[in-house]
C-alpha cells in the first residue's frame, strides 16, 4: 500500500495516535496548513477514533486554533493588563480601523490577519505589536498606522 502523505496522518503517526497529545497534534496540523481545514479535522477524528463532535468542540474551544485561513501578514496585538494600562486598546482600534476587520478575522484579499493575545510576557516593552513575528515595543496608535501603511504599500494595496 502506498504511504499516506497527508500531513495530518504523519503528525498523528508521530504522536502515536495518543489522545493526550490531541492539542499538540492540532497545533502541528495547523502549522502545516496555517489553519485547520475541515477535511483535516475529519481525518484526525477518523484516524484517532474520536467523534467529530469532540474534535470540533476542542478545535473551536481553544483560542490557538483557527478554522479559517489566515492572511499573509499577521498582526498580533498583546492585550495583557500591562499593555492595557499603556493603551493597547488604542492600537487595536487603529488596526481595526485601518484594516476594516475585527480581531480573529482576515481581510478578504487574504493579506492581513488581525489577532489579539492575552499576554506575551514581555511587559517591559508594552504595549506590544507583533507584526509577522517581529516584536514592536512601546507602540502608539500613530506608530501602528505607520507600520500598517508601510505593509500595505509593499503589497501595493490602498488602505
Amino acid at each position: 500500500m502506498e504511504e499516506d502523505v497527508r500531513p495530518e496522518v504523519q503528525v498523528m503517526e508521530r504522536y502515536g495516535y495518543e489522545r493526550s497529545y490531541l492539542i499538540s497534534i492540532l497545533h502541528e496540523v495547523q502549522k502545516e496548513y496555517q489553519y485547520l481545514p475541515e477535511q483535516a479535522l475529519r481525518n484526525v477524528a477518523a484516524g484517532m477514533g474520536i467523534s467529530l463532535v469532540d474534535i470540533y468542540g476542542v478545535a473551536t474551544f481553544f483560542k490557538a486554533f483557527s478554522l479559517k485561513p489566515k492572511g499573509k501578514h499577521s498582526i498580533v496585538l498583546c492585550m495583557g493588563t500591562a499593555c492595557h494600562v499603556r493603551n493597547s486598546r488604542g492600537l487595536l482600534e487603529e488596526a481595526r480601523r485601518f484594516l476594516g476587520i475585527e480581531p480573529g478575522d482576515t481581510t478578504d484579499d487574504l493579506l492581513f490577519s488581525l489577532d489579539t493575545v492575552n499576554c506575551l510576557g514581555a511587559c517591559a516593552l508594552g504595549p506590544i505589536a507583533v507584526i509577522d513575528g517581529e516584536y514592536h515595543g512601546q507602540m502608539t496608535p500613530a506608530k501602528m498606522e505607520r507600520l500598517l501603511k508601510k505593509l500595505a504599500k509593499e503589497e501595493g494595496v490602498r488602505k
Binding site: 467529530l52 463532535v53 469532540d54 470540533y56 468542540g57 474551544f61
Partner: peptide
C-alpha cells in the same frame, strides 16, 4: 455538541 467558548458557546453540529 458544544462549540466555541465563553459568551460565544453554542450547541450545533460539527461545521
Amino acid at each position: 455538541g458544544f462549540f466555541n467558548r465563553g459568551v460565544d458557546r453554542r450547541v450545533a453540529m460539527p461545521f
